[in-house]
Design a protein around this nucleic acid. Structure first.
Length: 116
DNA sequence: TGCTTGACATAAT
DNA sequence: CATTATGCCAAGC
Protein backbone atom coordinates (compact mmCIF):
# COMPACT_ATOMS: atom_id res chain seq x y z
CA UNK A 1 0.00 0.00 0.00
CA UNK A 2 2.70 2.40 0.86
CA UNK A 3 4.20 1.75 -2.52
CA UNK A 4 0.87 2.53 -4.19
CA UNK A 5 0.33 5.59 -2.05
CA UNK A 6 3.83 6.76 -2.76
CA UNK A 7 3.21 6.29 -6.43
CA UNK A 8 0.10 8.46 -6.26
CA UNK A 9 2.01 11.12 -4.41
CA UNK A 10 4.89 11.20 -6.81
CA UNK A 11 2.35 11.74 -9.56
CA UNK A 12 1.06 14.87 -7.89
CA UNK A 13 4.34 15.93 -6.36
CA UNK A 14 5.71 18.92 -8.28
CA UNK A 15 9.38 19.12 -9.04
CA UNK A 16 9.55 15.51 -10.14
CA UNK A 17 9.92 14.53 -13.77
CA UNK A 18 6.46 13.06 -13.86
CA UNK A 19 4.89 16.05 -12.15
CA UNK A 20 6.35 18.37 -14.78
CA UNK A 21 5.05 16.14 -17.55
CA UNK A 22 1.57 16.15 -16.10
CA UNK A 23 1.72 19.93 -15.82
CA UNK A 24 2.47 20.23 -19.53
CA UNK A 25 -0.23 17.78 -20.54
CA UNK A 26 -2.71 19.73 -18.46
CA UNK A 27 -1.86 22.79 -20.56
CA UNK A 28 -3.06 21.11 -23.75
CA UNK A 29 -6.27 22.87 -24.80
CA UNK A 30 -9.37 20.90 -25.64
CA UNK A 31 -9.73 19.84 -29.26
CA UNK A 32 -5.96 19.85 -29.73
CA UNK A 33 -3.25 17.20 -29.47
CA UNK A 34 0.46 17.14 -28.70
CA UNK A 35 3.17 14.56 -29.35
CA UNK A 36 5.20 12.87 -26.66
CA UNK A 37 8.34 14.59 -27.87
CA UNK A 38 6.60 17.93 -27.77
CA UNK A 39 5.43 17.39 -24.21
CA UNK A 40 8.89 16.19 -23.24
CA UNK A 41 10.45 19.32 -24.68
CA UNK A 42 7.99 21.62 -22.94
CA UNK A 43 8.61 19.74 -19.71
CA UNK A 44 12.32 20.37 -20.09
CA UNK A 45 13.04 16.77 -21.02
CA UNK A 46 13.79 17.25 -24.70
CA UNK A 47 14.60 13.92 -26.26
CA UNK A 48 13.16 11.89 -23.44
CA UNK A 49 9.76 11.19 -24.92
CA UNK A 50 9.80 7.73 -23.41
CA UNK A 51 9.53 9.20 -19.96
CA UNK A 52 6.42 11.04 -21.04
CA UNK A 53 4.75 7.84 -22.13
CA UNK A 54 5.86 6.07 -19.00
CA UNK A 55 4.58 8.90 -16.84
CA UNK A 56 1.18 8.76 -18.48
CA UNK A 57 1.18 5.01 -18.11
CA UNK A 58 1.57 5.44 -14.36
CA UNK A 59 -1.10 8.08 -14.40
CA UNK A 60 -3.87 7.17 -11.93
CA UNK A 61 -7.44 6.92 -13.23
CA UNK A 62 -9.58 9.92 -12.43
CA UNK A 63 -6.66 12.31 -12.71
CA UNK A 64 -7.16 15.75 -14.18
CA UNK A 65 -4.54 15.04 -16.82
CA UNK A 66 -5.94 14.79 -20.37
CA UNK A 67 -3.57 11.96 -21.35
CA UNK A 68 -5.88 11.29 -24.26
CA UNK A 69 -4.56 14.41 -26.00
CA UNK A 70 -1.06 13.00 -26.13
CA UNK A 71 -0.23 10.99 -29.24
CA UNK A 72 2.95 9.77 -30.91
CA UNK A 73 4.90 11.62 -33.62
CA UNK A 74 2.95 9.83 -36.33
CA UNK A 75 -0.27 11.44 -35.10
CA UNK A 76 -1.55 8.05 -34.12
CA UNK A 77 -2.62 6.57 -30.83
CA UNK A 78 0.14 4.46 -29.33
CA UNK A 79 -0.66 0.92 -28.38
CA UNK A 80 -0.60 0.37 -24.65
CA UNK A 81 -0.69 -2.56 -22.26
CA UNK A 82 -4.46 -2.34 -22.01
CA UNK A 83 -6.20 -3.58 -25.18
CA UNK A 84 -9.28 -1.62 -26.11
CA UNK A 85 -8.10 1.49 -24.32
CA UNK A 86 -6.92 2.82 -27.66
CA UNK A 87 -10.48 2.89 -28.89
CA UNK A 88 -11.47 4.72 -25.73
CA UNK A 89 -8.84 7.35 -26.37
CA UNK A 90 -9.98 7.73 -29.95
CA UNK A 91 -13.56 8.14 -28.80
CA UNK A 92 -12.54 10.84 -26.34
CA UNK A 93 -10.62 12.74 -29.01
CA UNK A 94 -13.46 12.50 -31.50
CA UNK A 95 -15.74 13.79 -28.79
CA UNK A 96 -13.51 16.86 -28.58
CA UNK A 97 -13.98 17.44 -32.28
CA UNK A 98 -10.80 15.80 -33.53
CA UNK A 99 -11.18 13.95 -36.84
CA UNK A 100 -9.33 10.71 -37.55
CA UNK A 101 -7.88 9.58 -40.83
CA UNK A 102 -9.07 6.42 -42.60
CA UNK A 103 -5.95 4.77 -41.18
CA UNK A 104 -6.81 5.93 -37.67
CA UNK A 105 -4.35 8.80 -37.76
CA UNK A 106 -4.86 12.40 -36.75
CA UNK A 107 -3.86 15.31 -38.99
CA UNK A 108 -1.14 16.77 -36.81
CA UNK A 109 -0.85 19.55 -39.36
CA UNK A 110 -4.33 20.50 -38.34
CA UNK A 111 -4.67 19.56 -34.67
CA UNK A 112 -1.14 20.00 -33.37
CA UNK A 113 -1.07 22.19 -30.25
CA UNK A 114 1.19 25.18 -30.80
CA UNK A 115 2.39 26.46 -27.42
CA UNK A 116 3.57 30.03 -27.28
C1' DT B 1 22.08 -0.77 -4.49
C1' DG B 2 21.73 -2.45 -9.16
C1' DC B 3 19.30 -4.51 -13.18
C1' DT B 4 15.18 -4.70 -16.42
C1' DT B 5 11.33 -2.70 -18.60
C1' DG B 6 8.81 0.96 -20.81
C1' DA B 7 1.83 5.19 -23.81
C1' DC B 8 8.62 7.18 -27.88
C1' DA B 9 11.75 9.98 -31.12
C1' DT B 10 14.97 10.38 -34.62
C1' DA B 11 18.08 8.92 -38.36
C1' DA B 12 19.16 5.73 -41.78
C1' DT B 13 17.80 2.26 -45.40
C1' DC C 1 6.08 6.96 -46.79
C1' DA C 2 7.21 2.35 -44.04
C1' DT C 3 10.40 -0.26 -41.49
C1' DT C 4 14.57 -1.13 -38.64
C1' DA C 5 18.07 -0.03 -35.28
C1' DT C 6 19.83 2.88 -31.47
C1' DG C 7 19.58 6.13 -27.48
C1' DC C 8 17.63 8.59 -23.66
C1' DC C 9 15.85 8.72 -18.32
C1' DA C 10 13.05 7.37 -14.56
C1' DA C 11 10.35 4.16 -11.89
C1' DG C 12 9.71 -0.52 -10.04
C1' DC C 13 11.43 -4.86 -7.87
Amino acid sequence: MEAGARKGQSARRPGTTRGRIYAVVRRIPRGRVATYGQVATLAGLAGHARQVGYALHALPAGSSVPWQRVVNARGEISLRSVPGAGLTQRMLLEREGIRFDARGRIGLERYRWEPR
